[in-house]
Each structure stands twice: as C-alpha cells, then as structure tokens.
Amino acid sequence: MSKRVSTSLLSILSVLASLLVVGSVGQQAGAAPAAFVHPGVLVGKAQLDHVRQQVNAGAQPQTQAYQAMLNDALLSQSRAPHPRSVVECGPYSNPNLGCTDERQDALAAYGNALAWYVTQNAMYAKKAISIMDAWSAVITSHTNSNAPLQTGWAGSVWPRAAEIIRYTYSGGWANLSRFQSMLRTVYLPVVIKGSNSNGNWELTMMEAAVGISVFLDDKADYDTAMAKYLVRVPAYVYLTSDGALPKTVPSMGLNTKAKIVSYWQGQSTFVNGLTQETCRDFTHTGYGIASISDVAETSRIQGNDLYTGDVGTRLRYALGFQAQYELGAAVPSWLCGGTVHRGLGPVTEVGYNALGNRLGNVMADTRTLVVNNRPAGDNILFVAWETLTHGDQPN
C-alpha cells in the first residue's frame, strides 16, 4: 500500500472513529442548534444582564472583579492595538513576533466589550471595535511551530468580544464583514484541523472553532469542531470506567501501553481526574481544563448541556483532582514521581459554577480554590475575568 493511500485510509478511519465515539453519547453529542443563540460564546445575554445587575448593586463577587478588570492595563482607553500581517510564534513564543500583541489585543477587545455591556457607555464599545478593526485590516496568517496554538488562543477570544458588540451595541460596526472574513479565512481553516500534539492544543483550537462557528452561524464547522472536542475530552481526562488505559485519539496511533504512558508524561497509574498533562505541569493542564469548560459553557448556551453527561463528569473529576494538589496536598510517590509542578491558573470559575453551583455537585477542594483565586483576572493567553462573568452565576 502506498504512503498516500495509507495516509488517506488512516484519515478516513479517524473520522469514522470520531463519529462512533460521538454517537455513543447520544443526544449529548452537541450538534448545532436549529438557530444559534446570540450573544452566545461563553457568555449569554442572561449572564451579561446578571453581571450588570450585580455591579450596579455593588454585589459580590462581580463588583470586585469588575473593578479589577477596569484597572487592568489592557482596558486603558489610551492603549493602542499592535496588529501585524503575519504573526510568527515559535516554541514557547520564541520568536515572538506579534504573539503577545495579538493575544493581549483580543483580550482587550473582550474586556472593553464586557465594560460596554455593564456601563452601556459607548466609549467601551467603540474601543473594542477599533481593536477588532485594526487586526481585521491587516492580518493574513500565523507562522512557525506554535502557529496553530496561537491561532487557537486568539481565535478563542475574538468571537467572545465580537458576539457582545454585534448583538448588543446599536451604534454600528462598519467593518463587521471584514472581521467576519478574518475569522473565516485566517483563523477557522487552521483551528478546525485540530492537532495531534499535547491535548491542550486541540482543546483550545476546538474552543476557537466552536466560538467562531457560532459567530459566523456556521453549523457545519460547529458540528465538525464539536465532534473533535467530544473525542479529545475523553482522551484528555481519565476515568476508571475507561479501563486499564486512557482513551486515545484514533489519528495519533497510540496503540500500545508504552506509547500511551509516554504520551501521558510517563505516568502509568491512572485515577479519576488525572489528565494527559498533569505530570507535565498544571499550567498546561489548566489550559486544557479551561477549554473543556468554555466549550461546554458555549454548548449549554446553545441549548445542549454537556455538563450533565460524560464531559461534565470528566471535568468535575479533573477540577477536583488538580485542585487538591494546587492547594498543597502531599503528592504520592505514584503520581508524577512524587512531584507536580503547580500553577493551574484562573481556570476554575466556569466549570465550578456549572457543576458545583448550578448542578449541586459537592466539590469542596475546587470551591476552595475558586474562592482563593478571586477575583480571577487574565492570564494573557485566552482565559480572562471569569469571576466577573461566571462567579456564582445563576443563569
């Protein structure tokens, strides 16, 4: 069999396997709704209304979180965006030619969009639009080894900002179609492909693809992204019900125990809530947990609650498992050789609010970590201000 035929066959088998996995969770599979809800990427209108009501009433945790956001340098009204035609990001953003600028500008647009909704001050909406316009006018591509991940990081945030502005600000957005074209041509073709790297890559890329698809009212790409997500989540968070070894993504060829253990950072003992990157470090694990949570939240807003099924179960265990060690619990010798690298980041609010507050699961360690981290700010990648948007959020 030729290499080309073999590669094509593997690709077909991978897609079929993905469909089988998605089909196995039935109606939980997260197909696109008949009509997308707007605004509907990570935060919906009812949630935004609650945030505004809380801040106007001086209630917590939103008021403190809102003031912290306003004090963030990213929301300075004198801050200028720094768009580039080609953003070049190598390993760990080295070289860093526009990588930090793009991520921070996307977060700045999102923060200004949130500030607009809370205050109804058009100054913030216009600032968000000016940042999005600056980038849509010039960017053409991302390059170097971290290009897919960078595209996912920025691509996760742009549609959050754009959804709020497009569907709640009546002052007009002259370059809306150009921004849509940017997402359609520069971001979506990259992220929709997914990744066979560490799991946080594909999870972030699917978060971007899902959010962009909602903004573009693109049901086909939404379904494609969700299918990849629903294969990746079980391959990222282990449950004992999976069997002796973690699940895998078919396209990765992890067909022996030795390969799986190597991919799981040398970890050979598997317990509920362990992630594929726990023994790498908690920072990258946090990125994966954040995107699992964010996609589930967007799906819930769109009418399909993934928190009540397999995704929610894995997320609940992942949050609890990491939280206990982030809080300082002694690390057993069987886990990561007895040493973990902490630094989970501000990634717990969305998942905890859904699973602990809304669904009533007892998640003591996660709750403690959530409260300790408040108000959760931004980590200069793609996670930002989640105490404001999701802290004890009833909607």
Rank of each mutant, 00 (worst) to 15 (best):
D305V: 11
Y263K: 12
Y317W: 15
N304Y: 07
A296Y: 05
D294W: 02
T275H: 11
E297R: 14
C279T: 04
V271H: 00
F321Q: 10
P246Q: 07
G328L: 13
T278D: 09
L306S: 13
E326L: 09
I260S: 05
C279S: 11
G337V: 12
Q267T: 03
Y263F: 15
W334E: 05
E297K: 15
Q302K: 06
F321D: 10
T298A: 07
G338L: 12
Q324C: 10
I289E: 03
D294I: 00
D305L: 10
A318C: 06
H284E: 02
H284F: 05
T278R: 11
S291G: 04
L254G: 06
H284R: 02
R300C: 05
K247Q: 15
D310G: 12
T275R: 05
D281I: 00
S268G: 05
L327R: 04
Y325D: 03
V331N: 11
R300P: 02
D281V: 02
E297A: 15
Q302N: 06
S268T: 04
H284K: 00
Q276W: 01
G286E: 09
I301T: 06
V311W: 00
V295I: 15
Y317A: 15
S299P: 10
Y325H: 04
G286S: 08
V311L: 03
G266P: 09
G337K: 09
H284P: 02
R314F: 08
A258E: 15
G273W: 09
Q265L: 05
A258H: 00
G312K: 08
T248E: 02
A330T: 15
S333P: 08
A329R: 15
A296M: 09
D281E: 12
L327H: 07
S251G: 14
N304P: 07
F321W: 08
S291P: 01
E277M: 06
L327M: 11
P250V: 06
V261Y: 12
Q276K: 03
E326H: 09
S293M: 02
Q324H: 14
V311F: 02
S251F: 03
F270M: 01
G266M: 04
G303Y: 01
K247F: 07
V261Q: 12
T308I: 11
Y263M: 07
R316D: 10
Q265D: 15
A323P: 00
N255I: 13
D281W: 02
I301M: 06
K247E: 14
G288K: 01
D310C: 10
V249F: 07
A318P: 04
Y263C: 00
A330M: 11
L254Q: 09
L274E: 07
I301G: 04
T256W: 03
C279N: 06
G303N: 00
Y317N: 11
H284V: 03
G303Q: 00
T256A: 01
F282W: 09
G328V: 14
A323R: 00
T298R: 10
D305K: 05
A318K: 06
Q302H: 03
G273N: 05
T313D: 14
T248D: 01
G288I: 06
W264L: 04
A318T: 08
I301H: 04
Q265M: 14
D281H: 08
W264T: 04
L254C: 09
S262L: 11
C336L: 11
I301K: 03
I292Y: 03
L319C: 01
P250N: 11
